[in-house]
């Protein structure tokens, strides 16, 4: 039962921790992550959301309001990090929706989770890029985006998925 579990408070707390950690990681490793021209962007918050959906599907009768928390995370991301309202507030819940859709086709485990996360990060970065182009935040060309941002970001985030999947599952089962 979601209503009675520790996840009710644990999920949002760790969600915000992940959100703030994204910024701290970007700041502390900025010399390596934003080593021009390539940029690796950390998306731990998406990792937590996606893992939430994956583990939710594992346990049968366990519905969590992940979509709603994704919207809240998107609002904070937009206001606090970018200052441009209206981008991630839509992308984060979309990713949750997309993950739920994919999970209904593929049974989630470590490997299929990795694939789903690959798709999520690609969609996230692509939509973020399109929005950035639309409001003239970036003037990067499409090929530059794929080589310099999408590639390294995917590599970094998939590595984070591999490293953090089992710890997150442990945390999740502990909270449940």
């Amino acid at each position: 039962m979601y209503r009675l579990s520790k996840l009710r408070f644990g999920f949002p707390i760790i969600l915000f921790l992940m959100l703030l950690l994204d910024g701290s990681i970007s700041q502390n490793f900025s010399a390596h992550m934003f080593h021009y021209p390539t940029a690796m962007v950390s998306h731990l918050v998406v990792l937590w959301l996606v893992c939430g959906v994956l583990f939710e599907a594992d346990a049968n009768d366990f519905e969590m309001p992940i979509g709603r928390w994704a919207i809240v995370a998107g609002i904070v991301f937009d206001l606090y990090y970018t200052g441009i309202f209206g981008i991630y507030i839509f992308i984060f819940p979309l990713l949750v929706y997309l993950t739920r859709l994919l999970v209904s086709y593929i049974r989630p485990n470590f490997l299929s989770g990795l694939l789903i996360y690959f798709i999520d990060i690609t969609v996230l970065e692509a939509l973020g890029y399109l929005a950035g182009r639309a409001i003239h935040l970036s003037s990067m060309s499409g090929t530059d985006f794929m080589v310099n941002t999408l590639g390294p970001t995917l590599a970094f985030n998939l590595a984070m998925f591999v490293v953090l999947f089992f710890p997150i599952r442990w945390v999740y089962n502990w909270l449940k």
């Binding site: 910024g23 970007s26 940029a39 970018t82 950035g132 310099n148 941002t149």
Partner: peptide, 15 residues
Amino acid sequence: AVITRTPSSWQNQVI
């Protein structure tokens, strides 16, 4: 002091 940095590849922004 710099608190954090925007995790974004085109917005080079620190807080």
